Computed example of a mutant assay.
Amino acid sequence: MSERTVPGTGHALLSRFHLGGSGPTVAIKDCIDIAGQPTCGGSAALADAPPAARHAEVVQRLLDDGWQITARANMHELAYGMTGINDWNGTAVNPQDATRMTGGSSSGSASAVGAGLVDLSIGSDTGGSIRLPAACCGVTGFKPSFGRVSRAGAYPVHSTLDCVGPFARSMDLIISAMASIAPGFDREAAQAPAADARVRLVTVQADADIAAAVQAAFAASGWRGTPWTSQHMQAAFEAGMTLINRETHAAFGHLLGRGKLGADIEKRLSAAATTSDAAVAHAEEVRAAFSTEVDAALADADALLLPTLPALPPTLEAIAQGASVLTLSSLVRPFNLSGHPALTIPVPIAGSPLKAGLQLVGRKGEDERICALGLHLEQVLRRHVTA
């Protein structure tokens, strides 16, 4: 057991403490400032960081509304990976299946919520880092519209992709958290009836059991759906990685060569240094094209509907033997590039104890409508389980 993690929490939590009131309990990802604590980004390279002088804005807003902040959550080193494997802090355990990866980079945030260690957690999502681990761990995770929730006090300091957002086991808590952390968030609109929604069913490649789970949940929702195929989604997936590489190297490239980064991060961050200006310019062209395409698809629909992940998370053993996880973010990362709000909801897989993730993507700034859709879907699925 790593000395840097709390015993009995499966490496999900790095420390336990208490700040705030008597409301629901919250864990904060290790790349978000808590006053008086170092923000280490899951990395030995930042272990000597000085304590934060002030709370990140999202932390202060939660405290102001009476939430209890009780823990610091583990993460993939420097938020630069999808597996959640962390050789320094230890790797958080997937509460759905301990043999499978938790997902990154907000691994501890998803694991802690799924295991019932906290009611809510706050993570960050640059290329799927809330939605991917939420889907792996069978919980709900929400990436708000880009800029809707302040990143002040979150790292890296500069990002054109990253969003701070909540994990929970219920939409009620997601909505309550958004009402606290997102200025102007309309709780009533987020709880409005959504049985008559119109959605675009996005054509994607996904394993048969995942596709069937998502289709069954859509059928139960009562929503009207029409198919939609993106022309730019694959390009957006690739462009998102180009910008992540450029921006992560700009933030953390100075840590290279010190012998304190994990081997994988050292290798990837070194390679990111070669990201060319031409590649970045092309990525921005793709961003504009994909954003316009998604805006057009949502002009007469409430949301896009698609799987969160195209397959179940691989086992840790398979990853150790070289299994690639790259395509697992193919359905989430594009919406970081475009900036649209995106929510993942756990849905049952027939004949399996595991749950898949169903993703809803909405119009920019209309986070409340996506939350209302998520609440409706959760209620419908709950009735089906108890019927």
Rank of each mutant, 00 (worst) to 15 (best):
A278N: 09
A278Y: 14
A278H: 12
A279P: 06
V280P: 06
V280F: 08
V280W: 03
A283T: 05
A283N: 05
A283S: 09
E284S: 08
E285H: 13
E285S: 12
E285N: 12
E285K: 11
V286H: 07
R287A: 01
R287N: 07
A288T: 13
A288R: 14
A288G: 06
F290K: 03
F290R: 05
F290E: 06
S291T: 14
T292P: 08
T292K: 14
T292M: 14
E293G: 01
V294Y: 00
V294D: 02
V294A: 04
D295Q: 03
D295R: 10
D295T: 03
D295K: 00
D295V: 02
A296H: 09
A296T: 13
A297L: 09
L298W: 03
L298R: 12
A299V: 07
A299K: 10
D300C: 08
A301G: 06
A301K: 04
A301M: 04
D302M: 03
L304A: 09
L305F: 09
L305Q: 10
L305H: 12
L306G: 07
L306F: 01
P307N: 01
T308I: 04
T308C: 01
T308N: 02
L309Y: 00
P310T: 06
A311H: 10
P313N: 04
P314F: 01
P314T: 06
P314H: 05
P314L: 00
T315R: 14
L316G: 07
L316N: 07
L316V: 06
A318V: 07
I319W: 04
A320D: 15
A320E: 15
Q321T: 10
G322Q: 11
G322I: 12
A323Y: 08
A323W: 08
S324D: 15
S324E: 14
S324L: 10
S324H: 09
V325P: 03
V325L: 13
V325I: 14
V325R: 07
L326G: 12
T327N: 15
T327C: 11
T327K: 15
T327P: 13
L328K: 00
L328H: 04
S329H: 01
S329W: 05
S329D: 10
S330R: 10
S330Q: 07
S330D: 00
L331C: 02
L331E: 01
V332D: 08
R333M: 12
R333C: 14
